[in-house]
C-alpha cells in the first residue's frame, strides 16, 4: 500500500482484568475519512483510547507516518492529533475559554496567555461550528448538542492532521448532524485532514466515510469501503438484527432499513423467510 499515513499493527490494549482488544490491524492514507462501527461494547472507544495514549498498549505498534505514536511527547502528539470524546468533559468555563484550550499544545513553557493568533483560530472554528454566538456563555449552561459543537471546535483549534471523533453527532438533531459532518467532510477535502469517526448510525457511516472498520467483540469483523462492509449479512452477523439494505438514490451508498417484528412475521407467513 503506498504511503500509509496511520498504521495500527497488532494493537492490543484494554482495562485491567476486563475488556481488551485483540490484535487490531488497519491502515489509513492521508486525507482518508474512516469510520469505526460496531455494536455497543465491541471496542470502538477502546481503539481511540489506545491511539490517543490514554490506555497503554499491551502489544503492537502505532505509526503516524514514520513516527511511533506511543513515543511521541504529549504536546507534540496533541499538535498532530485531536480527540473529541463521546461525552464532552465540561467545566465552569466560558465557551470561548473552552475552545481556546485547544491551543494549549502550542503554548511555550513560560507563555501563560493566548496569543492573538490563538484567539483568531478559536474564533474561526467557533464560527464554523456555529457556537460563536454562545462564546460568552458557560459550558455548563449549554445543551448537550451545543457542548458537542464546542468540543469539536476545541479539537479543530488544535489544528490537527488527524481527528478522532467518538460519536460526534450523538446529541445533535439532523440539521446539526449534517452541518457538523459536512464541516468535517469539507475540512477533510480541503486540508487533507485525516478523520476517524466512531458512529452508530450506519447510514451516516455509509454516506460520509470512505473506509469502514466494523468491530465485534474486541476484534475487527471486517473492513473496507462502505459498499463492501455494509451488506445485510455482515450487519446481521455483528448486530444480530434483521435489516434490509438498498442504495441511497442520490449518492448510491448503502442505506440500511430496520424491520419490525410484525413485518418479519408477515414476511415469514407469506414467503417462509424475508423476501429481500
Amino acid at each position: 500500500m503506498e504511503s500509509e499515513y496511520l498504521k495500527i499493527e497488532r494493537m492490543c490494549c484494554g482495562y485491567p482484568g476486563g475488556f481488551h482488544l485483540k490484535e487490531i490491524n488497519f491502515a489509513l492514507q492521508k486525507g482518508e475519512f474512516a469510520g469505526i462501527i460496531g455494536p455497543n461494547g465491541s471496542g470502538k472507544t477502546t481503539i481511540f483510547r489506545g491511539i490517543s495514549g490514554i490506555l497503554a498498549l499491551r502489544s503492537g505498534s502505532m505509526w503516524l507516518q514514520s513516527t511511533d505514536l506511543s513515543k511521541l511527547k504529549p504536546a507534540m502528539k496533541a499538535q498532530r492529533m485531536a480527540v473529541v470524546s463521546q461525552f464532552p468533559d465540561v467545566a465552569n468555563v466560558t465557551v470561548e475559554d473552552y475552545v481556546l484550550m485547544g491551543r494549549i499544545p502550542y503554548r511555550e513553557m513560560f507563555q501563560f496567555f493566548e496569543s492573538r493568533n490563538d484567539h483568531e483560530i478559536a474564533q474561526k472554528y467557533m464560527q464554523l461550528t456555529g457556537i460563536y454566538e454562545h462564546r460568552n456563555k458557560l459550558m455548563t449552561q449549554l445543551s448537550g448538542g451545543e457542548q458537542q459543537l464546542a468540543a469539536i471546535a476545541q479539537a479543530l483549534s488544535q489544528e490537527p492532521e488527524l481527528l478522532l471523533l467518538d460519536e460526534p453527532t450523538s446529541h445533535l438533531d439532523i440539521s446539526h448532524t449534517v452541518q457538523i459532518l459536512n464541516l468535517i467532510q469539507r475540512l477533510n477535502h480541503e486540508t487533507s485532514l485525516t478523520v476517524i469517526m466512531i458512529i452508530h448510525d450506519l447510514n451516516l457511516a455509509a454516506e460520509y466515510c470512505d473506509y469502514l472498520v466494523m468491530m465485534d467483540k474486541g476484534e475487527i469483523f471486517t473492513k473496507g469501503t462502505p459498499e463492501e462492509v455494509l451488506n445485510y449479512k455482515n450487519i446481521e452477523d455483528v448486530y444480530k438484527t434483521v435489516v434490509v439494505t438498498q442504495n441511497n438514490p442520490l449518492s448510491g451508498k448503502p442505506a440500511i432499513f430496520l424491520v419490525s417484528e410484525n413485518i418479519m412475521r408477515e414476511q415469514r407467513e407469506k414467503y417462509g423467510g424475508i423476501n429481500r
Binding site: 483510547r49 490517543s52 495514549g53 490514554i54 504529549p74 504536546a75 507534540m76 502528539k77 496533541a78 499538535q79 492529533m81 485531536a82 480527540v83 470524546s85 468533559d89 465540561v90 467545566a91 484550550m101 485547544g102 494549549i104 499544545p105 488544535q158
Partner: peptide, 10 residues
C-alpha cells in the same frame, strides 16, 4: 476537563 481530556490536549 478530566485526566483523559488533559492528555489529549498535550
Amino acid at each position: 476537563l478530566g485526566e483523559s481530556k488533559a492528555s489529549t490536549l498535550g
